[in-house]
Nucleic acid binder design. Structure first.
Lengths: 206, 206
DNA sequence: CGCTAATCTAGAACAAGTTTCAGACTTGAT
DNA sequence: ATCAAGTCTGAAACTTGTTCTAGATTAGCG
């Protein structure tokens, strides 16, 4: 298994070694600050200082705070996908496996609630200028869910169900992060939405 | 039928007439600016000027831009709930009626996409300090959906389904507003998630 | 090596959300 | 009518995201 991640961006100009190192330092600083105090604690000047880079350079690498945090999320997601791949969920049905996978991810986020806050808020606050990056996150999430379902060729109906699951996932996270829903409630909602999977299984076609 | 809306906030100190007028002017200015250019176009200094109120006063009425926009959303939601009540959806099943209601709301939002942008972005960007107000919006939305279902005493399962529908509603709106999903896709996702209602109907209990 | 274009740095400057403050105005109670 | 308390105003100040500029450094190339 080669080191190259499965789906990197078009990679317009290949980065030199030092540039790659800068990029890593920036993402690391971003995640570190986010872990401390969430979205507000990621201040561009501080990120620049922590990663030993001038402010202008930071903006050359990531054209806005939201871009930076979405990239941070891409980074974390790749991690998580790798982790999940090693220990696939054990449930008997696709719905169970997806729910189990999402709850596992949820528990990981609970360990770093501030980081989760920063990433999710950035993701939902992103405007059109960040669409490509947000889309990439969405594709990665879809891949994780489809992995859990064990599907190669999902039907359009199933894809819609997966989109709805992702919608619920993001929005439920937000309600939890802003203290309006308990962990138990998020769990219930995830389990509820996962029932859609059974409903859209090919043999259950209406 | 009295003028008092069904569920106002605790209403700590009752406002004088002039204060009520100020509050209305502010909300009106906010909605107007939002209709022009969305979230970014609602600039606190401009809102203050448009509503003939000092900046400090604006902040006394609404402690942050997000508070202001969430309050604007409450206002619009009350409007919409009233409109919907007059022409209840005609679908045969609860799922159809909910989907119809949400699509009607969606079409209303499409007429003012910038306003929708401002309100939805504020809603999902809100942090804990805005929780009470966001919760109020959520309750209002829940009321609209339950109205469409025609339910008096929903089961916990059904409430979870309604929450999932709201999650999908908000998140699907965001993907549409940020240009990552088409109107058709939003429609499909809404219809998909509404199928959950049938799944949680009391007689279909697992 | 020496040149050129691209990149990086430090720092100022700008934009918009938020806070603060002194003084003028309202309100409600006596 | 008058006083005290609370509210509103106008303006400045502060914070943090973002942009800009001039000069130093680096990378790639002949």
């Amino acid at each position: 298994m080669p080191a190259e991640p499965s789906s990197a961006l078009p990679a317009s100009p290949p980065l030199t070694e030092r540039q790659e190192a800068r990029r890593r330092r920036i993402l690391h600083a971003s995640a570190q600050l986010a872990s401390r105090g969430g979205f507000d604690a990621v201040q561009m000047r501080e990120v620049a200082e922590s990663s030993q880079v001038a402010l202008g350079t930071l903006y050359r690498y990531f054209p806005s705070k939201v871009h930076l945090l979405v990239a941070t999320m891409q980074d974390q997601l790749e991690h998580m996908h790798g982790t999940l791949r090693k220990k696939p969920p054990q449930g008997a049905t696709a719905a169970e496996r997806v729910a189990e996978t999402l709850m596992r991810a949820f528990r990981a986020l609970q360990r770093e609630p501030h980081l989760a806050d920063a990433m999710v808020r950035a993701l939902t606050f992103a405007d059109r200028s960040v669409s490509p990056e947000v889309d990439q996150v969405s594709r990665q999430t879809t891949a994780i869910v489809l992995d859990a379902m064990g599907l190669e060729n999902p039907t359009p109906e199933q894809l819609s169900a997966v989109r709805v699951i992702e919608h619920t996932w993001h929005s439920a996270l937000i309600t939890w992060l802003s203290g309006r829903a308990s962990i138990a409630q998020v769990k219930i909602d995830i389990e509820t939405v996962c029932r859609l999977i059974d409903l859209t299984a090919p043999e259950a076609d209406s």
